[in-house]
Nucleic acid binder design. Sequence first.
DNA 1: GGCTCGGTGTTGTCGTGTCAACGAATGCGA
DNA 2: TCGCATTCGTTGACACGACAACACCGAGCC
Lengths: 143, 143
Amino acid sequence: MEPLTDADAELWAAWVAASEALAQVSTDVAEATGLSEPDVTVLMCLQQADGARLRQSDLATTTGWHRSRLSHHLKRMAERGLVNRTEVPGGVEVRLTTMGRAAAARARPVHADAVRRHLVAPLPSRDRERLVTILRRLTAPGS
Amino acid sequence: MEPLTDADAELWAAWVAASEALAQVSTDVAEATGLSEPDVTVLMCLQQADGARLRQSDLATTTGWHRSRLSHHLKRMAERGLVNRTEVPGGVEVRLTTMGRAAAARARPVHADAVRRHLVAPLPSRDRERLVTILRRLTAPGS
DNA sequence: GGCTCGGTGTTGTCGTGTCAACGAATGCGA
DNA sequence: TCGCATTCGTTGACACGACAACACCGAGCC
């Protein structure tokens, strides 16, 4: 319960600053495609799914979202014509519309480019390797 | 405009996962104190300010927030009794209430503890040094 | 005085996210 | 058959943040 050491405070500050810098990835994608970060998450999950369709509960699992969040968001995406939902026995099936598929196709290269610009390019290759290793320690079981 | 290499995709995935893990810092603080992350930001800025009071525009500068966001948030914080606002020539002055000061005092050790638990403790000291260096490259001028 | 201008805050609207409450379908044991 | 829990999804209320539109005020200038 003591205050952070200077070194730890600097580490935290650096983390916060870097997080804000990397938030630019989502901003770039949004500007170029009109899709929010959650939009992209949903579109990518659906496109990678077998048959490009998923039960809503499976989508909740793969995104890690709560059911209510997913319900709200899919409703909005459906209103914008990106997905459609049909009742099936024991749940709801979500599918990409043609517009949704097109939006996903547009988003992918923009996203890749933004990641390269904001995360990959600023770091020498040695740092990138080290960073992966370190980041994984932050999410390791005994975190 | 080509897709990410496997290594770059892994780096991005590791970053996203770690970000979600470190979001737990705010969650911990919120659970323990009832304060959101923006609440804490405001409280800390005010407490460190000379005389524990700031012009609203100065607060906008130090937090990096838009004026409208700050206005909305201060209104809510004022309703909860954490700050009060008084008009002064050429602007509005924000001050901590007694409750606000107490909340800030409660939040500080909780925050420090959360940072230690989620960011500092999982990493050996060598990694912490490297991480600071790498993160700073992500926010360097030519980012 | 009357003028524009830049700076300061507020407000409304919309998209988003969380939480708790609810409703419908399913299964299962008494 | 009757309950009862589980799973699934929706809904409403609220907090939060971005954006644009607006009002206000003091400074400078005609």
